[in-house]
């Protein structure tokens, strides 16, 4: 054997990173109650058990779980993060420390998230996916939520459960602004373009959207911004005029409750403004952008055409 092949024999050192898989826990659901100290509960998939722990600070969460379970924690498989309390700081820490996959679903609960997970009353991740696919809510995973918090106007929307229904909770690092109405959530889902179907009652029948071609424009009026949603929607309906009115209400509610009332930019409005040549959008701070949005006017100009089924 030639001596220069010897270094290659060191390659098996790569395998030193492997540990016994039986001493690992890979939680798929993590619940956290955020307060002075943080209470945690995690559902481990292999053993179908709930691990509970307490941590004094957010960065200590993985260690707390590890100590409580007596096993190495693999956090790369978390698919749902349940939270109670202001969740912004937790999400930022989780993504900075890379213990939450960016595409994990997040959900805020009104009561204790840990108790909900332990008692088995927490909503499943699949419920959020189904809500997004049926156009009840826009699909907002950890990366989308955090992206809006760090960019845009610094106000983001978390999927949340309130009064037994799924909705969106507007909040920034300091406070929560409240939840959105059902119409606003549906309007955001319509603009989000990630749904597989979108049906709603229209008169005595059900209207089903087949095709949407919506555009968002942000323009500058004399003293404020104007956010316009325009375009065409093709739907399976007997009453296109009534469907148009309902959809206009949904889109108007989405713009009004997010941008015009709270100053939240969940629809890339800042980027649309930059594209529209508004200089302030390029240079202003997040707080200034939120203030500009609160003064903005919203318009919805859509046309609904009935799908010819013949």
């Amino acid at each position: 054997m030639k001596i220069h092949v010897l270094p290659l024999l060191l390659m098996p050192l790569l395998l030193c990173g492997c540990t016994d898989i039986r001493t690992r826990r890979a939680p798929d659901i993590l619940a956290a109650d955020l307060g002075n100290s943080i209470r945690l509960a995690a559902h481990a998939t292999q053993s179908d058990e709930i691990i509970t722990a307490e941590a004094k600070a957010l960065p200590l969460l993985p260690e707390a779980l590890q100590n409580a379970s007596g096993a190495e924690i693999s956090v790369g498989h978390i698919s749902l993060l349940l939270m109670h309390g202001n969740p912004c700081a937790m999400l930022e820490t989780a993504l900075e420390q890379q213990w939450l996959p960016p595409t994990a679903a997040v959900l805020c609960l009104p009561g204790s998230a840990c108790d909900a997970l332990i008692n088995g009353t927490a909503p499943a991740a699949e419920r959020l996916t189904a809500a997004a696919e049926t156009g009840q809510l826009p699909l907002r995973t950890a990366d989308t939520v955090l992206g809006d918090l760090l960019g845009g106007s610094g106000i983001t929307a978390f999927p949340a459960e309130a009064d037994g229904r799924l909705t969106l909770l507007l909040c920034d690092r300091e406070r929560a602004y409240g939840t959105l109405s059902e119409n606003a959530c549906r309007g955001l889902a319509l603009l989000g373009n990630r749904r597989k179907q979108f049906c709603f009652p229209c008169g005595e029948s059900v209207c089903s959207i087949r095709k949407t071609r919506l555009q968002i424009r942000v323009t500058e009026l004399a003293d404020r911004l104007c956010i316009t949603v325009s375009g065409k929607i093709t739907a399976e309906t007997d009453a296109p005029a009534a469907a148009e009115q309902i959809l206009t209400e949904m889109l108007s509610a989405a713009l009004r409750e997010t941008a015009c009332d709270a100053g939240a930019d969940l629809l890339f409005l800042r980027e649309y403004a930059v594209r529209g040549g508004i200089r302030a959008a390029k240079t202003c701070s997040r707080a200034e952008w939120a203030a500009l949005l609160r003064r903005a006017e919203s318009r919805v100009q859509i046309a609904v055409s009935a799908l010819e089924t013949g």
Partner: peptide, 21 residues
């Protein structure tokens, strides 16, 4: 693909991969 989440995780290429299974 990454949208507004750009700088919170060290390397944007690995963020892109995590966003794109």
């Amino acid at each position: 693909q990454n949208g507004r989440l750009r700088g919170s995780i060290g390397n944007p290429f690995f963020l892109l991969l995590a966003r794109t299974p």
